[in-house]
């Protein structure tokens, strides 16, 4: 008995602290005690974190049966692209039908599509969530945007920050607005950040930050705007002719 509990403890420690590659493989097969037919996202999707780090909030999904009531003890498996680590990778739903996992993103910056699968009775149910990993420069820009830009450019207010978006006569573009911002070149974005809206014949409500932010800061800001754009930004790269 003692040995078993110490083995359990050991596994717990392994699962929480050890490297990513083994824990999914070594996890003992969980036996589902019940099966649901539908799976729904509860919270933890659409998060933005740094490459290789754990996301701040856990991913929570809900398993329901045909009648929409929560199912306890249903097996939920989390899957993602290589490099993504789930802690735990498979879990049984709790009494409110929810399964929770902490996600650690991979080391390549970009969007990660995560799926949560529950086997179900006849066929499995899947829900997908997208999480974004930022590299160093993008993260720096993201933090700068939080300090200097989001008060106007983010229409959502948070507990700590009341948005100024609705107060502005000319509405700024939220940075996630890929439809508009993806069409603007890096040079245009640099101009508008450094010299203000009038630099591109736009509203003077956007002040110039060229004397306040360094050139590296502005580059970082643009990198972060590109990273969070929805639909995703496709850089206009060189077109290589194939031999």
């Amino acid at each position: 008995m003692m040995r078993r509990s110490s083995v359990c403890l050991m596994f717990l420690i392994l699962a929480t602290v050890a490297g990513c590659k083994h824990s999914a493989a070594t996890s003992p097969a969980l036996k589902a005690r019940a099966a649901g037919t539908a799976i729904a996202a509860s919270s933890g999707g659409q998060q933005i974190g740094e490459t290789g780090t754990a996301l701040k909030d856990p991913l929570v999904v809900q398993v329901n049966d045909d009648h929409g009531t929560a199912v306890q003890g249903a097996l939920v498996e989390f899957r993602g692209p290589a490099g993504v680590h789930f802690d735990p990778a498979a879990v049984l739903t709790d009494s409110s039908g929810q399964a929770t996992t902490t996600i650690r993103l991979g080391t390549i910056a970009g969007r990660y599509q995560i799926s949560a699968v529950t086997p179900g009775k006849s066929q499995s149910a899947t829900i997908q969530a997208v999480e974004t990993a930022l590299g160093y420069q993008q993260e720096l820009g993201y933090l700068l945007a939080e300090k200097y830009c989001d008060r106007c450019h983010d229409p959502e207010s948070s507990v700590e920050r009341v948005s100024n978006y609705d107060n502005l006569e000319v509405k700024p573009h939220p940075f996630t607005e890929g439809d508009t911002l993806n069409k603007m070149s890096d040079a245009d974005l640099v101009a508008i950040i450094q010299h203000g809206g009038p630099a591109l014949n736009r509203s003077a409500l956007m002040p110039p930050y060229g004397n306040t932010l360094s050139a590296a800061d502005v580059r970082a800001l643009i990198a972060s705007i590109r990273a969070v754009a929805d639909p995703p930004y496709q850089p206009a790269g060189t077109v290589y002719a194939r031999k």
Partner: peptide, 22 residues
């Protein structure tokens, strides 16, 4: 190191923080 743990400093530090009594 704890048995089964990867022999690397960050793993040791993180485990010490999370499960000091282990």
């Amino acid at each position: 190191f704890l048995p089964g743990m990867q022999h690397a400093l960050p793993n040791y530090i993180a485990a010490k923080i999370q499960q000091p009594r282990a």
